[in-house]
Write a protein that binds this DNA or RNA. Structure first.
Lengths: 132, 132
DNA sequence: GGTCGATAGTTGCATGGCACAAGCATCTAT
DNA sequence: ATAGATGCTTGTGCCATGCAACTATCGACC
């Protein structure tokens, strides 16, 4: 489980902190989505996410458009710049993993990708049933 | 890579924060070791580790014995209580993963364990060569 | 149509992990 | 013996995070 930490230690490539990359990634996957949805998704308090989003918005990576059906809410999506920054961050991470798995067989790499994806999903499911 | 986060969100079982578990785990693996060694190992500033260790020592989970060869340094090791707490934390985490992988085949689980261990080691190696 | 509880989001506040820098003690090499 | 390196601690500041309080809006019910 220290993998995250190990990766994090060297991701800094795009001078964007890990939490922000994390947020951007989720928005990219599920946009357009509400702030509260995002918060539930990444399991952080909505206040935290609110500040994160504000920051990323100021940086020009994220934009909100009012939800036509609910004037309290807003829809989040990436800007082009945000997409670019995220791409770059992901690329940096991928490069690191690639270097780490340089000597591996293709089968092993594919297996690892497949299994980790599956584990991530499973953990999400467990966490979901867990919390309520 | 969000696996760490996903796990972390539910580990709280032993009311010991994740960072502390992390530290205890490393001490368990490589004891007796110096504070500075530990810091290098987990890639945290020695000041941070100093405070962590002090805290864990106060809690009775860790003990230091003076290094006979170097009066500046100290050797860290777990106390019995520390070992127990760590065990408990690891068990909690394992239980969570077990639940997540409940429907998996034995082969897949073994594979995942093997590959993740290998990835962890590889990342450490890369990070090591990276930094200098 | 108005009232009340639930929900979306923001902001104030406290906490905790972290890094950096300065400092003290000790070690090592010349 | 002196100078620089190393081990550790402490002071300081930063920032992510959670909780609580607040405003605005929604939805349901009378």
């Amino acid at each position: 489980m220290t993998i995250g930490r190990r990766l994090r230690s060297r991701i800094g490539a795009s001078d964007l902190d890990p939490s922000s990359v994390f947020v951007l990634h989720h928005v990219a996957e599920r946009a357009p989505l509400r702030l509260s949805e995002l918060a539930r998704c990444i399991r952080l308090d909505s206040s935290t996410v609110s500040r994160q989003v504000k920051n990323l918005e100021d940086l020009g990576y994220l934009e909100r458009s009012g939800d036509p059906d609910d004037r309290r809410a807003s829809r989040l999506r990436l800007t082009d710049q945000g997409r670019a920054v995220l791409e770059e961050a992901m690329r940096a991470r991928a490069a690191l993993v690639d270097r780490a798995t340089a000597g591996w067989s293709v089968q092993d790499r594919d297996q690892l990708t497949k299994l980790m994806t599956r584990l991530t999903e499973s953990l999400d499911r467990v966490a979901g049933t867990e919390t309520r």
